[in-house]
Design a protein around this nucleic acid. Structure first.
Length: 804
DNA sequence: AGCACGCCGACT
DNA sequence: GTCGGCGTGCTC
């Protein structure tokens, strides 16, 4: 009886988002297992695509109306997606409205994605003149986008006449790095004999034989060549003569540049001990308990994580620690590696695709038992988890903003249930969702109320900028902040200056007519960049020269407005000419490693002031920083989003925590135009509990999460009318299935109505219990697929991070 | 996605 | 009368 494999094919569409049945050829019967990649024929002709074996079924009842095709090839000797991750992919696809294939690909390193190539070759029937004009003396021709249109036309015609053959090649992008190793293949005595038969002039060969006689272990070919200055041809001769053997050995690319300094567990304070004990108990009892670990900056959360991980390891289990990308600094990685050494694998965006793949394989093979990484590391192929840590659990970067729109925290909770292990959600300012669950005892709350060594909380001053504006000329710096900065310079202490968000600043406006330079593709003003002397669009990347004359009224009074980091830097050098300033924003950290380099410079006291965007608020530990200034606390508050206050509070609390460590008390200045706003007032005293209470009231009153679930539906099209029409149709359709309790907001144009020449419309639905919503949304997606040819795109975001 | 089929306009 | 334009439907 023929066996049947259910295969998820690499064709990301709604219609193909289901397993397809294939016959397993007899030769592959005992090889094919779920989770392996295979090559299958798909569609008409001989087109081949990659697929994932979803299920192998010996007793499947195939649809008698379709004749099954057979699997072409197996791409892996063993499954690369285990049973757990297959199940997870299925769950992800169902909960995020994404294709199963997209979910599978998201879980795996990019190196395992399929690479497709199409090759054409002439048949015997192809006339010789056509053959030479197309193929020259080549046997095969690569058919890709680089082929001229004329050639493509010809090839299509010839294919219709069956005069050429098309071969589809599916391969893995992955490249296992190999190095050539050399080792002696003869005994020292035999080599001695060989040496005597050599001519005196064969200097290099004699050198090689001498080396082989005295060094009996395996060595890298490149190392050997360098050590005794011989070339590879000498080695080849040596191999031919049987002196040595060469072998290509698989190696891992080592992403760690720095050496590890071994560290010991630190002494815990009573609160930490309580937390560690609780987490360890859950690990030991194999209980999928979720802990919410609340502790301000400097309260020693990391040490709790490390000891919980150590316990899991001591039980023979593995551990996963998620950290927001932005905080995944060498400092934090070093701390984990210092404790657990070679067992640690790190996954973050700074790795090359090869390095990432190698780290992934180390995990897959069980060589790495602790994984530290950003969002996508939540899919690390660990098979026996003892604890999962999600640090800074409130961070919005845990949510992926394209398909699959998953939240790493949710995936972590899923995996914990699967592995029967605890999850530790750590934060100084938990998300309202998590804190609310702790309130209802769904999560176990663990508190670290004190800073280690009882450090003082910083002194926070709120500076009313409207007041400042009345007394002084327009400046990014209030007089109090400026005075404080000068003091630090005199005392040789360091300061952090944070500018809230990059985009809302530094635009160009004409003083005469009020014209603001806009992006031609998006509905947003262009931002001034002094370094490149251009105007840039932060959404589509459009770039154009800085105008000196107003394009609208041709007046010459065109001026810069707002504050960007560059402008502040300039202002700073004017106000404090002696200060050494490091600017850190998306522009200065774009290059690989730039982020770390700047931080190291600052840590080494090569600068007095670190000026930057949000990225300076996270995961930095600089003991000599005694002043933190927030230049514009409320840019986020002005946004029409239900999470605006939460974000502002979190950011201010976090950045304030950067001031003053050890014996030096820190000072914080928060400049704002909304000095009485509760998010700002409560950040001043770092009173999370009061903020939580206040914000929950507002969320309750406004029917917002966590009291309501939400789903956001976005439609976009180059034709504005089509996007709007689609949205209207969707609303009408949804209203038929929704109960009267559901609340719909919109449809409205997107916060930025046009991005990259596409118009955006969106709709948010708030609901508590809508059993028919899910299937209605899937129906909308499959209907939209039919229109996708015309350019209409529909995206669904469940539990969106914002309603904008 | 990508391939084939199928139905209308400008050419030998 | 045909070539080939791209709208539509389907892929085990």
């Amino acid at each position: 009886m023929t066996q049947i494999a259910e295969v998820i094919v690499d064709v990301p569409t709604m219609q193909t988002n289901t397993p397809y049945s294939y016959e397993i050829p007899p030769a592959l019967v005992d090889q094919i297992q779920p989770g392996m990649r295979v090559v299958v024929p798909f569609g008409k002709g001989s087109r081949k695509v990659q697929g994932f074996v979803w299920q192998v079924d010996a007793t499947a009842q195939p649809d008698p109306d379709v004749t099954l095709k057979a699997i072409d090839n197996v791409m892996d000797p063993a499954p690369i997606v285990n049973a757990e991750l297959l199940q997870l992919a299925d769950w992800l696809a169902r909960t995020t409205y994404a294709f199963t294939i997209t979910c599978l690909q998201t879980m795996l390193p990019n190196a395992l994605k399929a690479k497709y190539q199409k090759w054409v070759s002439p048949t015997d029937q192809l006339p010789d003149d056509r053959r030479t004009s197309l193929f020259g003396d080549q046997k095969e021709l690569l058919w890709d986008d680089s082929l001229p249109a004329e050639t493509v036309k010809q090839l299509l015609l010839l294919n219709r006449q069956h005069l050429i053959k098309i071969r589809y090649e599916v391969s893995s992008k992955s490249q296992v790095k190999k190095v050539m190793m050399v080792k002696p293949a003869m005994s020292a005595e035999e080599l001695h004999v060989a040496k005597n038969s050599l001519r005196k002039s064969a200097v290099k060969q004699i050198k090689l034989v001498d080396y082989l006689m005295t060094h009996r272990h395996e060595i890298r070919q490149t190392e050997l060549e360098r050590a005794i200055t011989i070339s590879s041809s000498t080695l080849k001769t040596g191999e031919a003569n049987g002196w040595l053997s060469r072998q290509a050995v698989e190696v891992y690319r080592d992403p760690f540049q720095t050496a590890v300094v071994k560290t010991k567990p630190l002494q815990l304070n009573p609160d930490q001990t309580k937390a560690v004990t609780a987490i360890c108990a859950a690990t030991n009892q194999e209980k999928a308990e979720t802990f919410l670990l609340e502790g301000v900056t400097g309260s020693g959360k990391t040490e709790v994580y490390l000891q919980a991980i150590a316990n899991a390891l001591s039980r023979g289990k593995q551990a996963l620690m998620l950290v927001p990308e932005i905080s995944l600094t060498p400092q934090i990685v070093g701390r984990v590696r210092g404790r657990f050494g070679q067992q640690v694998a790190v996954l973050h965006s700074g790795l090359s695709s090869g390095e990432r793949f190698d780290e992934w394989r180390r995990i897959q093979r069980g060589e790495a038992r602790v994984v530290v990484g950003a969002r996508s590391a939540v899919f690390a192929p660990l098979t026996d988890l003892g604890v999962i840590v999600v640090d800074e659990e409130h961070e919005s970067s845990y949510k992926q903003d394209d398909n699959p729109r998953y939240h790493a925290r949710d995936v972590a909770l899923w995996r914990a249930r699967y592995h029967h292990c605890p999850v530790v959600l750590g934060s100084a300012t938990p998300s309202l969702e998590s804190r609310a669950r702790a309130e209802k005892n769904v999560y176990t709350r663990l508190l670290l109320p004190n800073r280690v060594n009882n450090q003082q909380l910083p002194q926070v001053t709120i500076v009313d900028m409207t007041e400042e504006l009345r007394h002084h000329k327009e400046s990014s710096f209030s007089s109090v902040l400026l005075r404080a900065l000068k003091e630090r310079l005199e005392r040789g202490e360091q300061s952090l200056l944070m500018l809230n968000r990059r985009g809302f600043s530094s635009f160009v406006m004409c003083r005469d007519c009020g014209f603001v330079l806009q992006c031609p593709n998006c509905d947003i003003s262009l931002t001034l960049h002094m370094d490149t002397k251009t105007m840039k669009c932060h959404y589509c990347g459009h770039e154009e020269p800085i105008p000196h004359v107003c394009p609208n009224c041709h007046g010459r009074h065109i001026r810069y407005y707002g504050t960007g980091t560059q402008k502040v830097e300039q202002e700073l050098t004017e106000l404090l000419p002696d200060a050494r300033v490091i600017r850190m924003d998306v522009d200065t950290t774009r290059r690989k490693g730039a982020h770390e380099r700047l931080l190291k410079q600052f840590g080494d006291h090569q600068a007095d002031i670190l000026l930057g965007t949000q990225m300076i608020a996270k995961g930095l530990d600089f003991p000599d920083v005694t002043l933190v200034g927030v230049l514009n606390a409320d840019t986020a508050l002005g946004l029409p989003d239900f999470r605006a206050s939460e974000r502002t509070f979190q950011l201010l609390t976090q950045v304030s925590g950067r001031a003053g460590r050890a014996e030096k008390t820190g000072e914080v200045f928060i400049q704002t135009y909304n000095p009485d706003h509760y998010a700002i007032q409560l950040a001043k005293t770092q009173n999370y509990e009061r903020f939580f209470g206040r914000e929950m009231q507002l969320r309750h009153r406004g029917n917002y999460p966590p009291y309501y679930f939400a789903v956001k539906i976005m439609a976009s099209d180059v034709d504005e009318r089509k996007a709007a029409e689609a949205m209207v149709k969707i609303v009408r359709q949804l209203k038929q299935v929704l109960s009267p309790q559901a609340i719909t907001l919109g449809p409205t144009p997107g916060a930025i109505a046009r991005v990259n020449k596409r118009y955006y419309y969106q709709l948010v639905i708030k609901y508590k219990h809508e059993p028919k919503l899910d299937s209605a949304l899937f129906k909308i997606l499959s209907q939209a697929q039919k229109q996708s040819r015309s350019g209409l795109q529909i995206a669904i975001d469940r539990n969106p991070m914002s309603f904008m």
